[in-house]
């Protein structure tokens, strides 16, 4: 491993006269990945960006070198390790995760759980100093016994029978294992709240884009969101600063789900939850609905995370509150409906 300028401690940037950093981004063609690459392109503290995905991101610029890597292949590990060593990568942002549940559960497992293992092992081989992993606060699970603000110390209690959650929990486990095995490495896990914003497209934005939004009759949980710009800013910040550990990345403030639906100008369709579970269960099998029935719990119970640790240790302050993120999303939807905004959601 050639010698590299490696700032120690909590220094936020590479030394003034020293070398700039090399950052690799997996899942670089995805929403978070492509925007993170775009942001890193503009950052003069970053010398080079290595984009890893099955195709090149659209935000590739002068600094970016794009590699085609398929994490679901068993050869991925050696290939990533080769790339990381050749490019002398300092830090990896691992963002190759699905933002919506899929029926291809085996493929999803290969990509998320095994794929993270490949990335973690390759990072160890190439002696990469830092791994930033994208995770979600949904992994805490929605339970009536949750405290109103979940802290990072609490166990992850999402339904493990649901591959969407189980694979992401395994991925976090892989990242923690890497942190244990290579003591010098900085492993940062960022658990984001559901991301909303003008351009993002995920399970929740599709849920809110329906004319009739199904809710669970008699339940009105408090929800929180993260603006897409804040999500990318948090990933950027985690790459620049050394903050090992797990952090909840969430917008300030909470909103009742009913208020969110009303802000969106949609009409709630309350369904008794046992009935909804049957309908959605059948609909999921028939591929008529967007999410499996295990997601319905998030429409009934609390799953809200505490932002304090990220604020105090990582120094992350979101620019948008949960409410502003909703409004920003809603405004973009309205512009699209009026054909004033022709860019489609990513």
């Amino acid at each position: 491993m050639p010698n590299m300028a490696r700032p120690g401690g909590l220094a936020p940037v590479a030394g003034a006269g020293g070398k700039t950093r090399v950052v690799a981004v997996t899942g670089a063609a995805g929403f978070l990945g492509s925007h993170l690459v775009g942001l890193l392109e503009e950052d003069e503290r970053i010398g080079r960006v290595v984009a890893l995905d099955v195709k090149a991101p659209q935000s590739v610029g002068k600094k970016t070198r794009s590699y085609e890597v398929d994490l679901t292949l068993s050869a991925a590990e050696t290939r990533i390790a080769e790339i990381l060593t050749a490019e002398r990568v300092d830090a990896i942002a691992h963002l190759a995760f699905l933002s919506s549940p899929t029926h291809a559960t085996a493929w999803c497992h290969e990509l998320e759980s095994v794929g993270t293992m490949h990335v973690a092992v390759a990072a160890r081989q190439a002696q990469v100093r830092k791994l930033v992993l994208w995770s979600q606060t949904w992994l805490y699970g929605a339970h009536p016994s949750n405290p109103n603000f979940l802290t990072e110390k609490l166990p992850l209690r999402a339904p493990t029978a649901e591959p969407y959650f189980a694979d992401k929990m395994e991925a976090e486990e892989q990242a923690r294992k890497l942190a244990q095995r290579s003591p010098g490495a900085v492993v940062t896990i960022l658990r984001t709240a559901p991301i909303l914003g003008p351009m993002v497209n995920n399970t929740f934005t599709r849920y809110l884009s329906r004319k009739l939004v199904p809710t669970m009759m008699g339940f009105d949980p408090l929800v929180q969101f993260l603006h897409e710009a804040d999500a990318i800013a948090a990933l950027h910040l985690a790459l620049l600063r050394d903050a090992p550990g797990t952090f909840n990345i969430v917008g300030d403030g909470v909103l009742p789900l009913s208020t969110v639906i009303k802000l969106a100008g949609r009409v709630a369709l309350p369904i008794p939850h046992p009935l909804a579970e049957t309908i959605v269960g059948l609909g999921w099998i028939a591929q008529l609905v967007d999410a499996p029935p295990s997601f319905l719990k998030y429409l009934r119970f609390l799953c809200v995370a505490d932002a304090r640790k990220a604020r105090e240790i990582m120094g992350f302050r979101p620019a948008y509150t949960s409410r502003e993120a909703v409004l920003d999303f809603v405004n973009a939807e309205r512009l699209r409906a009026n054909r004033l905004l022709s860019e489609t959601a990513a």
Binding site: G27, D53, D70, T72, F97, L98, S99, G115, A346
Partner: peptide, 15 residues
């Protein structure tokens, strides 16, 4: 735009 599994390492649903 509903997610379709593709052999990709990226989040699906992107157009």
């Amino acid at each position: 735009r509903a997610p379709r599994p593709r052999r990709a390492t990226k989040a699906p649903g992107r157009r």
